[in-house]
Design a protein around this nucleic acid. Structure first.
Lengths: 137, 137
DNA sequence: AATAAGTTTGTAATCATTACAAATATAAAA
DNA sequence: TTTTATATTTGTAATGATTACAAACTTATT
C-alpha cells in the first residue's frame, strides 16, 4: 500500500505535502517528531512550512491514520503504524522501540471500562535499551 | 503514613515545601499538574515559588516517590500513588481516572523485554468518561 | 559565631506548539 | 475558458509550560 491509498482509505484528500508526510511515516518507523518530519522533507519540498507539518500530522491523528505518542514528556512523536502495539523509550539515547502489545488481548477491541468509552490504548515502557546497555561495559 | 514518613522512606530530606507538596499529592488523587499544585499551596505558603514546585516534583519522580504522567500531550501530571495501575484520560473534560492495571501481572516486576532494561510501565487509556457520556443525553 | 552545604526564590530565557491572516492551489459554476 | 467558491499551505507572531541561573535564604557543621 502506498501513501495515496493510505490517505484515501482514511478519508483524507491527497496533496503533495500530505503524501510526502504520510510517505515519510510509512517508510520511517522511528516515531519521528514533527520537527524531524519537517527537517527530512524540507529539501525535497523547499516551500514546506513547519505549520503544515503540524497541521497535517494532527489531521492524520484526528482521522486515525497515525498515532500520537506522548511517551516523552518533552516531545510529541508520531507513528504511522496504527495497529495495537507497545512502545519502549530509552531515556539514555531517546530512541523509541516497538514492542508487541502485552495487555490483555481482549481489551484490544476498545472495551468499556467502568462505564468510560475507551477510544485509544497506549502502553509505554521506559528504561535503558539493549544498545545502550551494551555500550555500558 | 504521613508526608514526612513518605519522604524519608524515599531518602528525601523533609522541608516545609516538600512536606506540603507531598502532602498535597497524598491527599489529592487528581493527578495534578505542577501549576495546580502551586495554585493549591501558594495561599498557605505565600513565599512558594513555582520553580520550587517544578524542582520538587522532579525530585520526587527521580527518587520514585511520585510518578510523572505523560498521558496528556499538553500538560505533565503527577501521581503520588506509585503502585502499578492504569490511567484513563477523558478528552472531553480533561479528568484523569485511575483504573486497575490490565497488563500481564507477570510484567509488574519490571521485566527484561527484548534485552531492554525496563524501569517504568505506563498504561494509558483515552476516550470519553462515564460522567461526560451521561451529560450527553 | 563563622563557614559550608543544601534549599528556595524570582526573573529571564527556551522552545515546542498554535493562532491567524495572507497567499496559493484546487474544484465547481457560469 | 473565466469566474467564484472552497480547501490547503505558508510565514510570522504569539502562547505558555518548563528550565536556567544566580541571588537569597536556611540548615547543618566546624
Amino acid at each position: 500500500m502506498n501513501a495515496v491509498e493510505r490517505l484515501t482509505e482514511y478519508g483524507i484528500k491527497p496533496s503533495v505535502q500530505r503524501m510526502a508526510i504520510m510517505g515519510y511515516l510509512m517508510t520511517h518507523r522511528t516515531h519521528p517528531t514533527a520537527d524531524e518530519v519537517y527537517s527530512a522533507l524540507c529539501d525535497s519540498i523547499p516551500t514546506l512550512s513547519k505549520t503544515t507539518v503540524y497541521n497535517t500530522l494532527k489531521l492524520f491523528v484526528d482521522n486515525r491514520a497515525a498515532l500520537m505518542l506522548t511517551i516523552d514528556d518533552k516531545l510529541v512523536r508520531f507513528d504511522g503504524d496504527t495497529s495495537l502495539h507497545s512502545h519502549f523509550l530509552c531515556h539514555r539515547c531517546g530512541k523509541v522501540y516497538d514492542l508487541p502489545y502485552s495487555g490483555k488481548k481482549s481489551e484490544a477491541r476498545m472495551p468499556n471500562l467502568e462505564g468510560h468509552n475507551i477510544e485509544e490504548i497506549h502502553h509505554y515502557y521506559k528504561g535503558v535499551c539493549r544498545e545502550c546497555l551494551e555500550k555500558e561495559v
